[in-house]
């Protein structure tokens, strides 16, 4: 833990909650707040990480570890993915919470374990367009993160020069966007929230 001096003095003073206060008086965007440490009984759900049942034909396993800026695994993060189906179409079917084992909804959620690890069972998405490589859109939420981080998981078999995102990113950071294919056939994609290997995060 940091040894920074603790400041318990009021950080600001302004009248709040006066009678007649209206919710969101200016209609502006609702700010983000951290998911906190106690989402574990609320957000994860049975089948959440399994966009397709594991070990079905065509299923791939995408897994990894979430690390903080000191290289320590984050044990209280939740990871979500959103993706096209195997043909590149964007799914429009409901049913992510009520998984029927057949319908592909394109969305999954996995809380990390105590070692910071997550794992999804899904399909490799088709290319979303002629000029882009297939990818998974990924969000990571955690205690200590006031907002989510957003990234893309690309696949190592695809030519990175074919995708416009890589032209916007220093070559030294390209690897942080590409999953590693393991001998088992799984794809490993670690997320480094901060540090030397900081993952490329997107402004959305």
């Amino acid at each position: 833990m940091s040894t920074r001096p603790m400041d318990t003095s009021p950080m600001n003073t302004w009248p709040i909650g006066a009678e007649g206060d209206t919710p969101n008086p200016d209609g502006g965007l609702t700010p983000s707040q951290t998911v906190g440490p106690f989402f574990g009984y609320a957000l994860p759900f049975a089948g959440g990480p399994d966009l397709v049942p594991p070990h079905t034909p065509g299923a791939i396993r995408v897994h990894g570890t979430v690390y903080d800026g000191a290289g320590v695994p984050v044990p209280d993060a939740v990871v979500e993915i959103w993706q096209a189906d195997a043909t590149g179409r964007i799914p429009r079917a409901p049913g992510s919470f009520a998984r029927d084992g057949v319908t592909f909804t394109g969305w999954g959620r996995a809380a990390v374990d105590r070692l910071g690890r997550y794992a999804f069972s899904t399909v490799r998405p088709g290319a979303p367009g002629a000029d882009a490589n297939p990818y998974l859109a990924m969000s990571v939420f955690a205690r200590g993160m006031l907002r989510r981080v957003v990234t893309r998981v690309y696949f190592p078999e695809d030519d990175r020069h074919a995708d416009p995102l890589f032209a916007l990113v220093p070559a030294s950071r390209h690897e942080t966007l590409i999953a590693v294919r393991e001998e088992s056939g799984s794809y490993r994609f670690d997320v480094h929230i901060q540090g030397e290997q900081e993952t490329v995060f997107l402004a959305v």
Binding site: F201, L202, V204
Partner: peptide
């Protein structure tokens, strides 16, 4: 937030379909 905040600038992605 000290060790759980990105330090690199966020990248605006090219418009994707996803």
């Amino acid at each position: 937030t000290e060790l759980r905040s990105p330090r690199q600038p966020l990248v605006i992605p090219p418009s994707g379909a996803t």
